[in-house]
Structure formats: structure tokens, C-alpha cells
Design a binder for these strands. Structure first.
Lengths: 348, 348
DNA sequence: CGGCATGCAGCAAGCGCTTTCTACACGCAG
DNA sequence: CTGCGTGTAGAAAGCGCTTGCTGCATGCCG
């Protein structure tokens, strides 16, 4: 049998109540008693029963972090930053919390299911990262779930995701629109007029905002957007590779390829190179996010840096109540254009 | 107040016991009753209280995954594979489990603390990934903790980590030694004689095994290992960059740089390039792991592919009892040499 | 010196669920 | 017609912890 509070109490010759109070440190206990208890805990190698304590106290130290793809550094970096502020072991925060990263794989159902699971565990807090799926029924279901979580006392923060309508959940949204626009403006400034765009999966806010930013830049410059120059795909390298070949098939006159993110851009580079095109002499390429490997591409990738770690850390602090939420509960986090080797003046 | 089992029972006009049985499906319940209960659950939007149920049943559906660095795709890929087999939402397994990814940051203390946290939550299973810290007291503490977890009924599997002495924990270890050896043999076969080695952090099994494999290859070829040609660092790009500059400072005659992993190798490439050296004409570079971006480096990286996803999936299945553990509880997973553009014949 | 605030510890009532054991109603064999 | 197996539902005893309240010494005030 495992050791229980009562065993510790017996050994320390105090009541279970006292042991509990020593362990939680939320009630005055005489120093001598405390020491006796702690010694007993140590000697018996006692480990608190989490479920029991969560049940009795009606609280838990679980914090959930939802990500779309844990294998993607985009989410890994945010999750890492969030976790470090949540105050797991070694974190600066006081009580030890168990930060759990849940991988939704971008699936709306799983997102909802994980939220239910966290609700079931009476999670203390939840951070949702990544773009949302744009689909009315799902959005409504999410909003309802978030409201329920909030009601149950779970703090919720969205990180890198637009505010959820119908909730007053705190949101730290990335300025995908602005970043994409700035990026495309840069390319246009260089002289590009026919730009291909490799978008992410459809029905995602991130995808849409980046695409709209791109188109806004085109429109502002009086460039007619050609639908054939936009291809949708996933947020991975392979998708960028395939989409680029498709783009090349559709229109060989393009001088620049703007990708939904850096991984896609890398795939695009590979496809261009294999097609005998030089970067940026023949075709310029741009990514988004500025993940660590982007600077190592050859030529290094022109992209928009998103302050993933900073935003994650901030979300973590807010959800733990260690930082004031932004006014109105909504903040837009801007990206920064990083002009590097993969973009240049178009061939004439 | 939140809805409880009793509320559902009242609404369905049955006893709480019956509701519990319907929800757990482990006891015969008349169809008409079941339907009535399910309807009530639905109408009340009831969500089971996890802690309470874990306490009463003395089990939990939490599964822990320990990783060194969640921002590193090496771990992200494994975690993703493990999680998909664990049977979280959408997984193929039956009961829904909450897979929690814990980020130790490579710190021994945090590793231990997370294990305690998981023990406290009475986790159903735990998978530890990544190399272990080589340090007698810590190893002993870990072994003790793992034993305790096992005793308490938590299934434990090590993935990409050598067996823990003093436990009979199932382990899927990567053949870092063999992979490194093969890689260096490849370089030697190309004609390289002075190879720099950028090792990972000291006191890690992964670091040591890879380094030993490298040296074994050198020794087998009768090449004297020069201690000045080995530099230790972290497993990241920046570390590779700095270590390479240091290596170049120490010995400008080297014709190849072998890195502890792909990220380090990318940093090495950057440093070489900035130093005016061509890859592979002037200096060959090799990595380890074959992460997705490695093929996109220019030139693409020669490296050793580790079947991260496969190993993770297998570990996940084993820990869930859906696959037999390997004979003896220990399996060695081999890597595969990927010869690509970053390695070539040395300049004469 | 009585009385009362104060500090510390224990009692005991749950927290919401699971599960064993018991109860009841049938239906059918003896 | 009695008795018993079978199928289904309920009563109730916890699971191990937290916490409001009570109780008992102290020490200090008036």
C-alpha cells in the first residue's frame, strides 16, 4: 500500500489536518511541529495524492497548453516559453504546477475534446496557441466551451490566436495581416509584380490573415491579384515543395514566391532549385515566422519575425495572474520584417 | 455550482451508481436506462470530475512524456508520435487519455520533480525521452523514482535513452555509437584525416555515445585522436557556430566537422561560410538525427537518420500495453547513414 | 486575579465518484 | 407452488485529502 497522509500523521504524532497544513503552508504551524512532520514525510517518502487533494480542495495544479503541431518548432517555442512562466519545476513561480502540452493536430474535434479533458481535470488554466479554425459551428462550440471553463474558474488565454467571439477571453493575437502586408510591400518595392503565394490550409484564421495582408499590399500597389497565383497547402515543407512546382507549372513568369511560413518557404526553395532557378536572381522567396533554421537557409530567408517566445511568456504570465491582461483583454503582437538573402531585385 | 453525478442521476431518475456504470460501461445496464442517463448527461452538459473519479477508482488517465527541450523538433517529433499512440482524443486507443508533455530543459532536478508530480497524479504511464544525465547520485535517484512509479502501477518506458541501471524498465535506445561510427567511417572513407568534432553537453549519454562512436571509427582507421579537435557545447545552432569558430582557431588544417546533431551542424555551416570556406570543397560537415530541415540546408546535410517517429510510436504502444516489449526489455534502434551534399572528398 | 485575545492543533464533515454487496423482480425448473 | 438462477438497480462505504469549527493552553490586559 502506498503511504497516506494518515501514515505521516501517525509517525509525526500529529493529526492528518496538521500534516496537510504543513504541506500546504497556508496555516500557522509551530516550527517544532513542522519539522517533525517534514521529517516524517521524508522518512516515509510520502507523495501527496493529487486527485484526492484536488477533489477536496476543488482546485488542481494542472495547466493545459493546446498546440496544433508539437513537432513544429513554431509551437514548440511558444509552448516552451509558456511552460517556463507557468512555474513548473524550476520555474520562478511558487507552487509547482504540471504544465501539459496537448497536441490537437489542427483538428477541431480534438481541440474540443482536449478542452473537455482539461475541464474534467478541473485545470487551473489553459492556453490555446495557434490559429483558429474558421467554421461557424465549431467556433460556437469553442466559445461555449471556453465560457464554461471560465465559469468553472479555469483561466484561459489565447496566444497567437485571434479573440474568440462570444467570450471575454484574453487574447494575444499576432499581426499576421500587417506582417504579411509589409513583407509583400518589401517585395513590391524591390520591383516584383508577379508574385506567387503559397497559403496554409483553408479555414484557418492564420492562413486567411496572412493571405489578406498579402493581397492588401498588392492592391495598394495597384497590382491585380491573379487567383491562379495562390495555392493552398499544409504548413510544412513538403507542401511548399509541391505548391511551388504547381505554381511554376501555372505561370513561369513569376519572380517571387511568398510562403505561408518558413517551412513552406524552404520547400519552395528546394523546388525552385531543382527547377534550375536561382534564388534570388531568378525568383525571390519569403517566409513567415523566422524560426531558428530560417537564417541558415542558403540564401538566408527573408521573413517576418514573430516574437514567439516573448508572446508565449507573456501569455503564461497573464494566465497565471502575474501580469495584467492587456486593456480590453486583447493585444496585437506585431512581427518584424527581416530582409535577408532570399529576396532581391527581379530579373528584368 | 457545477453539475455532479447526483444531478444527472436525479434527472434520469436513477441512482448515482447507475450513472457511473453507464459512463464507464463496465457493468450491464438496461438499454432504456442507459439512454435515459445519456440524455440527462447531454441535457445537463455534465462533465465527469476527473480528480474524484481518479480518487475513487485509484487510477487516472494521465500519461506523462518527459522531454529535454520541447522547442527542439527532435523531441517534438518523438512526443508527437508517442502521443498519437497513447490514444488521446482521436487516437486509435479506446479510453481517452490526457497525454502531458513535460519540458525538463535537460535539468536533472526538473526531471525528478516532474516524475514526482506525475507520481502525485498517479499517472497511468510515463515515457522518458532523450539522453540521460550521467551522474551517479542522479542516476540512483532516478532509478529509485522509476522503481517507485512502477510499484505504484505506473508503466514506464524509456525512448531514445539507454536502460536505467537498477530498474527493469523497458528501454528503446538509439544506437548512437554505431551511427556515429558509421558516419565518421564514411568521412574517413572519403579521405578525411583531420576531423573536428563538436560534441553535445558533457555528462550526457547521448553525447558520450556519439563521441565514442566517432573516436572508435578514428581508432579503427589508425587515426590519432587529437583532443584539441573536440569541443563541447549545447545541442543548438549557436553552439555549433561558436564551436566551429573555436575549432578553426585551433587548427586550420581540418577538412571535416562532425556535429553532435543537425542543429549544431547548421551552425557549423554558417561559421564555415562566414570564414570563407566552401562546403564541402574546403570542409565537409556532418550532422546527426536527420531532422526535417536537414535536407534543405545547402548543401543538404550528410547525417544519420534516427527513426524518431517510429521509435516514439513503438514506445507509446508498449507503454499502453498494445505491443510486446522487446525481449529482455531492451531494444537498440539503429540509425541510417544519409550521405548528402555536405560531405565530399577533402581538398588535397 | 478574572477574563479574553491569541496561537496552535484536532475533530469531523465533506469533496464527487466507484464498487461491493444487497435487493428485487422475473422466469423457469423441479 | 416453491425455489433458485439471472439480470438489473440501489444503498452505502469508502478513496485520501482539505478546512471550518472547536478546544485548549498561553500570555496579557484591566
Amino acid at each position: 500500500m502506498t503511504v497516506t497522509l494518515a501514515d505521516v500523521a501517525a509517525r509525526a504524532q500529529v493529526s492528518p489536518a496538521t500534516v496537510s497544513r504543513v504541506l500546504n503552508g497556508n496555516y500557522p504551524v509551530a516550527t517544532s511541529t513542522r519539522e517533525r512532520v517534514l521529517r516524517a514525510v521524508d522518512e516515509l517518502d510520502y507523495v501527496l495524492n493529487g486527485p484526492a487533494s484536488a477533489l477536496a480542495a476543488a482546485t488542481s495544479d494542472l495547466v493545459g497548453i493546446l498546440v496544433n503541431d508539437i513537432a513544429d518548432p513554431f509551437f514548440g517555442i511558444m509552448a516552451s516559453a509558456i511552460q517556463s512562466e507557468i512555474g513548473g519545476p524550476g520555474g520562478r513561480a511558487g507552487g509547482e504546477r504540471l504544465a501539459v502540452v496537448c497536441n490537437t493536430g489542427g483538428s477541431p474535434e480534438r481541440e474540443l475534446t482536449y478542452l473537455t479533458l482539461l475541464q474534467r481535470q478541473r485545470a487551473a488554466a489553459v492556453v490555446l496557441t495557434g490559429g483558429a479554425v474558421e467554421n461557424a459551428p465549431h467556433a460556437a462550440a469553442m466559445a461555449a466551451k471556453l465560457r464554461k471553463l471560465t465559469e468553472a474558474g479555469t483561466r484561459v488565454v489565447l496566444c497567437g490566436r485571434p479573440p474568440a467571439d462570444g467570450t471575454d477571453t484574453v487574447a494575444l493575437a499576432f499581426d499576421n495581416h500587417g506582417g504579411a502586408r509589409e513583407l509583400t510591400e518589401h517585395l513590391i518595392g524591390l520591383g516584383h509584380r508577379r508574385l506567387g503565394y503559397i497559403a496554409g490550409p483553408e479555414e484557418r484564421t492564420t492562413t486567411r490573415h496572412r493571405l489578406e495582408g498579402h493581397r492588401a499590399a498588392l492592391a495598394a500597389a495597384g497590382i491585380e491579384g491573379d487567383p491562379a497565383l495562390t495555392v493552398h497547402g499544409r504548413y510544412d515543407r513538403r507542401s511548399g515543395y509541391e505548391a511551388t512546382l504547381e505554381l511554376l507549372r501555372r505561370d513561369t513568369s513569376l519572380t517571387a514566391v511568398v510562403a505561408a511560413n518558413d517551412s513552406v518557404a524552404l520547400g519552395a526553395c528546394a523546388a525552385l532549385r531543382e527547377s534550375g532557378l536561382r534564388i534570388p536572381e531568378d525568383v525571390s522567396v519569403a517566409g513567415f515566422d523566422d524560426l531558428p533554421f530560417s537564417i541558415d537557409a542558403v540564401p538566408s530567408l527573408t521573413t517576418v519575425r514573430l516574437p514567439l517566445a516573448e508572446a508565449g511568456a507573456r501569455a503564461g504570465r497573464i494566465v497565471m495572474g502575474r501580469e495584467e491582461p492587456p486593456p480590453g483583454g486583447i493585444a496585437t503582437v506585431r512581427g518584424e520584417l527581416m530582409v535577408r538573402g532570399s529576396s532581391g531585385v527581379p530579373r528584368s
